[in-house]
Amino acid sequence: MSSIGLSFGENPAGERPRSLTSAVQERLRADILSTRLLPGQKLHIAGLAKQFSVSLAAVREALSRLVADGLVQASDQRGFRVSPVSSADLKDVTQTRVDIEGLALRRSIERGDQEWLSSVERSFATLCAVPHTYPDDPTHHYEEWVVRHRVFHRTLVNACGSQWLLGFRDVLHEQSERYRRLAIRRNTEKSRNVEAEHAAIVHAVLKRDADAAVAALSKHFMTTMHLVELATAKASGGGNAG
Protein backbone atom coordinates (compact mmCIF):
# COMPACT_ATOMS: atom_id res chain seq x y z
CA MET A 1 0.00 0.00 0.00
CA SER A 2 1.37 3.36 -0.94
CA SER A 3 0.05 5.76 1.66
CA ILE A 4 -1.97 5.91 4.81
CA GLY A 5 -4.58 8.13 3.18
CA LEU A 6 -5.28 5.62 0.47
CA SER A 7 -5.18 2.61 2.76
CA PHE A 8 -7.50 3.56 5.58
CA GLY A 9 -11.21 3.97 5.10
CA GLU A 10 -13.76 4.79 7.74
CA ASN A 11 -13.58 3.07 11.06
CA PRO A 12 -16.46 0.81 12.26
CA ALA A 13 -18.20 3.77 13.88
CA GLY A 14 -18.25 5.57 10.53
CA GLU A 15 -15.85 8.33 11.57
CA ARG A 16 -12.59 9.20 9.84
CA PRO A 17 -9.53 8.61 12.03
CA ARG A 18 -8.45 11.90 13.59
CA SER A 19 -4.72 11.45 12.92
CA LEU A 20 -2.19 9.26 11.20
CA THR A 21 -1.49 7.60 14.54
CA SER A 22 -5.18 6.83 14.96
CA ALA A 23 -5.31 5.49 11.41
CA VAL A 24 -2.37 3.16 12.03
CA GLN A 25 -3.91 2.09 15.32
CA GLU A 26 -7.26 1.23 13.71
CA ARG A 27 -5.65 -0.64 10.83
CA LEU A 28 -3.47 -2.69 13.18
CA ARG A 29 -6.45 -3.30 15.45
CA ALA A 30 -8.47 -4.59 12.50
CA ASP A 31 -5.61 -6.83 11.35
CA ILE A 32 -5.15 -8.26 14.84
CA LEU A 33 -8.86 -8.90 15.41
CA SER A 34 -9.25 -10.53 11.99
CA THR A 35 -6.09 -12.62 12.65
CA ARG A 36 -4.36 -11.26 9.55
CA LEU A 37 -1.71 -10.55 12.16
CA LEU A 38 -1.44 -13.77 14.12
CA PRO A 39 -1.08 -14.16 17.89
CA GLY A 40 2.56 -13.88 18.93
CA GLN A 41 3.64 -12.31 15.63
CA LYS A 42 6.40 -9.71 15.92
CA LEU A 43 5.52 -6.17 14.92
CA HIS A 44 8.50 -4.35 13.43
CA ILE A 45 8.18 -0.59 13.78
CA ALA A 46 10.35 0.27 10.78
CA GLY A 47 8.54 -2.17 8.51
CA LEU A 48 5.13 -0.89 9.56
CA ALA A 49 6.22 2.72 9.12
CA LYS A 50 7.33 1.93 5.57
CA GLN A 51 4.17 -0.04 4.82
CA PHE A 52 1.90 2.75 5.98
CA SER A 53 4.12 5.65 4.85
CA VAL A 54 4.16 7.22 8.30
CA SER A 55 6.82 8.10 10.85
CA LEU A 56 8.36 5.69 13.32
CA ALA A 57 6.87 7.80 16.10
CA ALA A 58 3.33 7.37 14.73
CA VAL A 59 3.72 3.58 14.61
CA ARG A 60 5.28 3.46 18.08
CA GLU A 61 2.43 5.51 19.55
CA ALA A 62 -0.19 3.36 17.80
CA LEU A 63 1.40 0.19 19.17
CA SER A 64 1.56 1.69 22.65
CA ARG A 65 -2.17 2.39 22.51
CA LEU A 66 -2.81 -1.22 21.49
CA VAL A 67 -0.70 -2.38 24.43
CA ALA A 68 -3.09 -0.48 26.69
CA ASP A 69 -5.98 -2.33 24.99
CA GLY A 70 -4.34 -5.71 25.59
CA LEU A 71 -3.99 -6.52 21.89
CA VAL A 72 -0.22 -5.97 21.72
CA GLN A 73 2.58 -6.80 24.15
CA ALA A 74 5.73 -4.72 24.62
CA SER A 75 9.14 -5.79 25.89
CA ASP A 76 12.23 -3.65 26.41
CA GLN A 77 14.38 -6.34 24.88
CA ARG A 78 12.09 -7.85 22.24
CA GLY A 79 10.00 -4.93 20.99
CA PHE A 80 6.32 -5.34 20.14
CA ARG A 81 4.31 -8.41 19.23
CA VAL A 82 0.67 -9.37 18.90
CA SER A 83 -0.58 -10.62 22.26
CA PRO A 84 -0.46 -14.41 22.33
CA VAL A 85 -3.47 -16.62 22.93
CA SER A 86 -3.81 -19.57 25.28
CA SER A 87 -6.39 -22.01 26.53
CA ALA A 88 -6.30 -20.45 30.00
CA ASP A 89 -6.79 -16.95 28.64
CA LEU A 90 -9.63 -18.12 26.39
CA LYS A 91 -11.47 -19.61 29.36
CA ASP A 92 -10.86 -16.52 31.46
CA VAL A 93 -12.06 -14.15 28.72
CA THR A 94 -15.12 -16.27 28.01
CA GLN A 95 -16.24 -16.70 31.61
CA THR A 96 -15.68 -13.03 32.39
CA ARG A 97 -17.61 -12.09 29.27
CA VAL A 98 -20.47 -14.35 30.35
CA ASP A 99 -20.50 -12.59 33.73
CA ILE A 100 -20.21 -9.01 32.47
CA GLU A 101 -22.34 -9.25 29.33
CA GLY A 102 -24.90 -11.39 31.12
CA LEU A 103 -25.28 -8.68 33.76
CA ALA A 104 -25.55 -5.97 31.08
CA LEU A 105 -28.19 -7.98 29.22
CA ARG A 106 -30.19 -8.60 32.38
CA ARG A 107 -30.19 -4.89 33.21
CA SER A 108 -31.15 -4.00 29.64
CA ILE A 109 -34.16 -6.30 29.82
CA GLU A 110 -35.18 -4.70 33.11
CA ARG A 111 -34.71 -1.11 31.92
CA GLY A 112 -35.10 -1.15 28.15
CA ASP A 113 -38.15 0.45 26.57
CA GLN A 114 -40.07 -0.56 23.48
CA GLU A 115 -37.69 1.32 21.22
CA TRP A 116 -34.82 -0.78 22.57
CA LEU A 117 -36.77 -3.98 21.93
CA SER A 118 -37.43 -2.78 18.39
CA SER A 119 -33.73 -2.02 17.90
CA VAL A 120 -32.89 -5.57 18.97
CA GLU A 121 -35.31 -6.93 16.37
CA ARG A 122 -33.89 -4.64 13.67
CA SER A 123 -30.27 -5.47 14.39
CA PHE A 124 -31.05 -9.19 14.32
CA ALA A 125 -32.91 -8.89 11.00
CA THR A 126 -30.03 -6.87 9.56
CA LEU A 127 -27.55 -9.50 10.68
CA CYS A 128 -29.59 -12.32 9.18
CA ALA A 129 -29.69 -10.52 5.82
CA VAL A 130 -26.03 -11.26 5.04
CA PRO A 131 -24.16 -14.59 4.92
CA HIS A 132 -22.07 -15.75 7.87
CA THR A 133 -19.10 -16.70 5.67
CA TYR A 134 -18.05 -16.20 2.07
CA PRO A 135 -19.91 -18.79 -0.06
CA ASP A 136 -16.68 -19.91 -1.74
CA ASP A 137 -14.55 -19.77 1.42
CA PRO A 138 -16.14 -20.93 4.70
CA THR A 139 -12.89 -20.27 6.58
CA HIS A 140 -13.39 -16.50 6.43
CA HIS A 141 -16.25 -14.43 7.76
CA TYR A 142 -18.18 -12.25 5.35
CA GLU A 143 -16.86 -8.88 6.45
CA GLU A 144 -20.23 -7.12 6.52
CA TRP A 145 -21.51 -9.92 8.77
CA VAL A 146 -18.69 -9.17 11.21
CA VAL A 147 -19.74 -5.52 11.38
CA ARG A 148 -23.41 -6.35 11.83
CA HIS A 149 -22.60 -9.06 14.37
CA ARG A 150 -20.74 -6.53 16.51
CA VAL A 151 -23.67 -4.12 16.29
CA PHE A 152 -26.16 -6.87 17.17
CA HIS A 153 -24.38 -7.92 20.34
CA ARG A 154 -23.86 -4.30 21.41
CA THR A 155 -27.54 -3.53 20.82
CA LEU A 156 -28.53 -6.35 23.16
CA VAL A 157 -26.89 -4.56 26.09
CA ASN A 158 -27.28 -0.90 25.12
CA ALA A 159 -30.11 -0.30 27.59
CA CYS A 160 -28.18 -1.44 30.68
CA GLY A 161 -27.67 2.15 31.83
CA SER A 162 -23.98 1.86 32.75
CA GLN A 163 -21.14 3.23 30.64
CA TRP A 164 -18.63 1.43 32.86
CA LEU A 165 -20.35 -1.88 32.26
CA LEU A 166 -20.51 -1.24 28.52
CA GLY A 167 -16.84 -0.25 28.48
CA PHE A 168 -15.72 -3.46 30.18
CA ARG A 169 -18.03 -5.41 27.89
CA ASP A 170 -16.48 -3.84 24.78
CA VAL A 171 -12.95 -4.77 25.87
CA LEU A 172 -13.98 -8.38 26.44
CA HIS A 173 -15.80 -8.53 23.11
CA GLU A 174 -12.68 -7.36 21.32
CA GLN A 175 -10.50 -9.93 23.06
CA SER A 176 -12.92 -12.75 22.27
CA GLU A 177 -13.16 -11.66 18.64
CA ARG A 178 -9.59 -12.84 17.97
CA TYR A 179 -10.41 -16.28 19.32
CA ARG A 180 -13.61 -16.53 17.29
CA ARG A 181 -11.71 -15.68 14.11
CA LEU A 182 -9.18 -18.40 14.89
CA ALA A 183 -12.00 -20.95 15.12
CA ILE A 184 -13.44 -20.11 11.73
CA ARG A 185 -9.99 -20.12 10.10
CA ARG A 186 -9.77 -23.81 11.10
CA ASN A 187 -13.31 -24.37 9.79
CA THR A 188 -14.57 -25.74 13.10
CA GLU A 189 -17.83 -23.74 12.87
CA LYS A 190 -19.15 -25.59 9.82
CA SER A 191 -21.76 -27.56 11.80
CA ARG A 192 -22.83 -24.61 13.91
CA ASN A 193 -26.14 -22.79 13.49
CA VAL A 194 -25.15 -19.32 14.63
CA GLU A 195 -28.41 -17.77 13.45
CA ALA A 196 -30.40 -20.16 15.64
CA GLU A 197 -28.21 -19.28 18.64
CA HIS A 198 -28.84 -15.58 18.06
CA ALA A 199 -32.55 -16.21 17.54
CA ALA A 200 -32.81 -17.95 20.91
CA ILE A 201 -31.33 -14.88 22.61
CA VAL A 202 -33.64 -12.50 20.76
CA HIS A 203 -36.72 -14.61 21.46
CA ALA A 204 -36.02 -14.52 25.19
CA VAL A 205 -35.26 -10.80 25.14
CA LEU A 206 -38.52 -9.96 23.39
CA LYS A 207 -40.39 -11.98 26.04
CA ARG A 208 -38.39 -10.10 28.70
CA ASP A 209 -37.30 -13.43 30.12
CA ALA A 210 -33.97 -12.38 31.61
CA ASP A 211 -33.03 -15.84 32.89
CA ALA A 212 -33.62 -17.48 29.50
CA ALA A 213 -31.85 -14.67 27.63
CA VAL A 214 -28.75 -14.83 29.82
CA ALA A 215 -28.72 -18.63 29.57
CA ALA A 216 -28.92 -18.45 25.76
CA LEU A 217 -26.18 -15.81 25.65
CA SER A 218 -23.93 -17.89 27.92
CA LYS A 219 -24.49 -20.99 25.80
CA HIS A 220 -23.64 -18.96 22.69
CA PHE A 221 -20.34 -17.77 24.17
CA MET A 222 -19.43 -21.20 25.55
CA THR A 223 -20.10 -22.81 22.17
CA THR A 224 -17.61 -20.41 20.62
CA MET A 225 -15.07 -21.26 23.33
CA HIS A 226 -15.38 -24.99 22.71
CA LEU A 227 -14.99 -24.53 18.96
CA VAL A 228 -11.88 -22.40 19.48
CA GLU A 229 -10.44 -25.10 21.73
CA LEU A 230 -11.12 -27.62 18.96
CA ALA A 231 -9.50 -25.34 16.39
CA THR A 232 -6.35 -24.80 18.43
CA ALA A 233 -6.08 -28.50 19.20
CA LYS A 234 -6.25 -29.27 15.47
CA ALA A 235 -3.60 -26.66 14.76
CA SER A 236 -1.17 -27.87 17.39
CA GLY A 237 -1.88 -31.57 17.40
CA GLY A 238 -3.62 -31.39 20.74
CA GLY A 239 -1.71 -28.63 22.55
CA ASN A 240 -2.76 -25.21 23.72
CA ALA A 241 -3.05 -22.19 21.50
CA GLY A 242 -0.22 -19.73 21.35
Rank of each mutant, 00 (worst) to 15 (best):
R97K: 07
L217N: 03
S191G: 06
Q73A: 12
R65I: 13
R186K: 08
Y142P: 00
R16M: 02
V85H: 13
S218E: 11
H140I: 03
R178V: 14
I109A: 14
G239V: 00
H140D: 02
W116D: 05
S64Q: 14
Q114P: 07
D31T: 13
L28D: 10
R154H: 07
V194K: 08
S64A: 11
Q41D: 08
A212P: 05
Y134Q: 06
F168G: 15
G237K: 07
G237S: 02
L6A: 12
A46L: 03
H149F: 02
L33M: 09
E15V: 04
R18G: 01
T21W: 11
E229D: 10
S236N: 02
T96M: 12
T224D: 11
R18S: 04
S123F: 03
V67N: 13
S22D: 14
I100L: 12
E143N: 14
A74V: 07
A200L: 11
Q41E: 15
R148T: 10
E189D: 03
Q51F: 05
L166I: 15
I184K: 01
H141I: 05
T139Y: 12
S218G: 01
L182W: 01
S75L: 08
T188F: 01
L182Y: 09
S119C: 00
H198L: 03
R81F: 04
L230D: 12
M225S: 13
R29K: 13
R122H: 00
E195S: 01
A216Q: 11
R150D: 09
L43C: 05
S34P: 07
S176L: 12
R180S: 06
G70Y: 10
H149G: 08
E177Q: 05
E143D: 15
G112V: 02
G242K: 08
K207A: 09
T126G: 11
G102I: 09
